[in-house]
Design a protein around this nucleic acid. Structure first.
Lengths: 195, 195
DNA sequence: TTGATTTCTTGTCCTATGACAAGTTGATTT
DNA sequence: AAATCAACTTGTCATAGGACAAGAAATCAA
């Protein structure tokens, strides 16, 4: 059987077979978000995560001065999720917003828990996914310390080329930890030097 | 009964009563590390965490250029842990090192799992602890983006005054994301302005 | 279509911080 | 004590990036 491509991608894992995938698929519901719509708002309790089939999403937090700092981008075939709130059942301090019209496959907390308890391949997959997520987090922190803004831009270009094309500059800038003007100059430099 | 002070501190939680605390206490073993000794080395699988009774500990990772970047400090009454490796059973990329002679109460993975399954207050406590840890992580990332080096220094001063007194400057500098010389100048500035 | 709004670029100037090197101090070894 | 080494400070210079302001370009609304 043919499943939505983001589900096949995301749940590709040695421990997950066709049958498992079928149960996993059934546990998801298709949902759509319009450009600008909030998928999660600070203060809420996250009750689901979303496999992104199409579109672009960002997460952001507010700095002490009240500025929005983009903390993550999500592209197709990635999981839109706020781990702390979803797994720990705490109100979130982040916002998650669709940057374009989005097509998602949502799985609710309870359905997810069921899969986690009943499909051992899913448990393995979850651990592996979480492991990669934690590592990515740590590497982002390190990158903020050791890399120049230009290098962080180039890395983002490699890992999320779509983001650079679709997201407004100001969101990318706060994600990279620079001002709008600086990012504009970085872009120019990168274009000139032909990276 | 009287337990080691770091255990009483760390496991203070509404859901944990005297009896629970007694089981928890029994699951720990006292261990000592000498100044400079490694508690965990990159490539290893973490098999325990450590409640720090006395001493100072740091975690560090290597940057792409091979420089050591201090990623965390641990003071008494805190838990010395590498979450990714311990919980996800993966080899770690971090190193954890005693910066002074240390007295710890260690709990092994299996003992921890037992408590987690059998003492509901411990499960709650674990979630709450993890929640705070995830949040702290995210806030550190944000701080690297939004705060000046001097502000990060002042925050560290408030949250971990002992670290500033005991840790060599170079470790503090890489934790704050600045060079040794810059930190030296930040110290001078802070001393002058009398913060 | 026209005006308003948002997005992005660019200029000028300034400050924080890095790179590098030299010097000081204090601890450790022989 | 002398020599060595690590920890820290300080100076000089260079540069990345911030603050602010003025456009240009694109998008959206009326």
């Amino acid at each position: 059987m043919k499943y939505p491509s983001c589900l096949s991608e995301i749940y590709a894992h040695p421990g997950i077979d066709e049958l498992d995938l079928s149960s996993i698929y059934t546990a998801h519901e298709q949902v759509f978000f319009s450009k600008g719509e909030f998928i999660l708002t600070e203060g809420q309790l996250s009750n689901a995560y979303y496999c992104l089939e199409n579109g672009l999403v960002r997460a952001f937090a507010k700095s002490a001065e009240g500025n929005e700092i983009t903390t993550a981008f999500f592209s197709p075939n990635e999981i839109v999720i706020e781990v702390a709130s979803l797994f720990l059942r705490q109100a979130t301090r982040e916002n998650i917003q669709a940057l374009s019209d989005c097509e998602c496959w949502m799985i609710r907390y309870d359905a997810f828990q069921d899969l986690f308890e009943n499909i051992s391949g899913f448990t393995e997959w979850g651990r592996s996914w979480m492991s990669r997520a934690l590592l990515a987090n740590k590497q982002r922190s390190l990158s903020m310390i050791t890399d120049t803004a230009t290098n962080r831009y180039l890395k983002l270009q490699q890992e999320h080329p779509k983001v650079l094309q679709m997201a407004p500059l100001k969101y990318i800038a706060s994600y990279l930890g620079v001002t709008d003007s600086s990012l504009s100059r970085i872009r120019k430099e990168v274009a000139l030097k032909g990276y």
